[in-house]
Write a protein that binds this DNA or RNA. Structure first.
Length: 278
DNA sequence: CCACAGGACGGCT
DNA sequence: AGCCGTCCTGTG
């Protein structure tokens, strides 16, 4: 067990449950079991401190700080965003402590390919099916969990086997992506170096990845915060609050209004819309 | 049983 | 270039 003192606001509950990740499990004591790339962690927040256990202790603090983006300066982000308008000011204030989770690129790519035209419970279900069939089983905290497989583990997996995991018509997209990675036609690291525009275009060359999915991948795996994933929810909000319609107009507005942190602004808006009534 | 929700794609203007 | 039917699964 390690303890991590928090020196800036961190809202563990909203960060975990706001739709960034799908494979987490809330425990009775209010903590979360979360499946990361190569390990399972249990995180409990008490006062201004995190209590973390894992099946792998090596580099645990570093892994957790990176995963929850604890060392990023959210003051700067906040100040950049709130100057824009009242609505986002309110949403950003409300969302203080919401962090951008830094996820594994491969898992994120598959996650968001599956997310296309799909609901949150179904996405989680498909991901768990894939992990249970092809991922490594790990005993932790009185349960068995399955790590999400690496693309090398999926080399021989057929389209039919993905279909059996209830991914529907996205089966061939997953297979296509896994094949390209194994043939090294795409390298996961290359997107870190590229500009946002370049990496968006490069991602969208792949079947099953359009503007929304590509934006989510860059936002959640590559820390590129100047993307703006437009889904049906965003379209609704933009129409209601700003009378703006059409994907291109929305993206243009977001870029001009929220600038280099537009991807975080949208998380704040979503979090605000989802939780303010409670 | 049917209607619907949710992005990408491809075929049509 | 933009519009719209289709793809699959789970839920109401």
């Amino acid at each position: 067990m390690i303890r991590i003192k928090l020196n800036s606001p961190f809202d563990l509950d909203n960060t975990v449950t706001c739709g960034q990740i799908f494979r987490f499990f809330k425990k009775e004591d209010g903590s979360y079991d979360i499946i990361l790339k190569d390990r399972i962690i249990n995180v409990l927040k008490k006062e201004e401190e995190l209590f973390v256990t894992s099946n792998i202790d090596k580099d645990l603090e570093t892994v957790v700080r990176d995963y929850f983006d604890l060392d990023n300066n959210y003051e700067d982000i906040y100040n950049e965003i709130i100057s824009k308008d009242d609505k986002i000011d309110e949403a950003a204030k409300f969302s203080a402590g919401l962090k951008m989770i830094h996820q594994d690129p491969f898992e994120t790519i598959i996650e968001y390919i599956i997310s296309a035209n799909n609901g949150v419970p179904q996405i989680a279900n498909s991901l768990n099916n894939i992990a249970e069939k092809f991922g490594k089983r790990v005993a932790f905290n009185g349960n068995y969990y399955y790590l999400f497989p690496r693309y090398k583990d999926l080399k021989e997996v057929s389209v039919e086997e993905y279909r059996n995991c209830k991914v529907g018509f996205r089966d061939k997209y997953i297979k296509g992506m896994v094949d390209k990675l194994n043939k090294e036609e795409i390298k996961l690291e290359e997107f870190y170096e590229m500009s946002t525009k370049e990496s968006l275009n490069k991602l969208m060359e792949n079947a099953g990845i359009g503007p929304k999915v590509a934006s989510c991948i860059l936002l959640f795996a590559y820390k590129k915060y100047d993307v703006f994933p437009v889904d049906t929810w965003v379209k609704k909000v933009m129409k209601q609050n700003y009378q703006i319609e059409g994907e291109e107009k929305i993206r243009k507005f977001a870029k001009e209004t929220y600038g280099k942190y537009s991807g975080i602004a949208i998380q704040y808006l979503f979090n605000y819309g989802r939780n303010k009534e409670k």
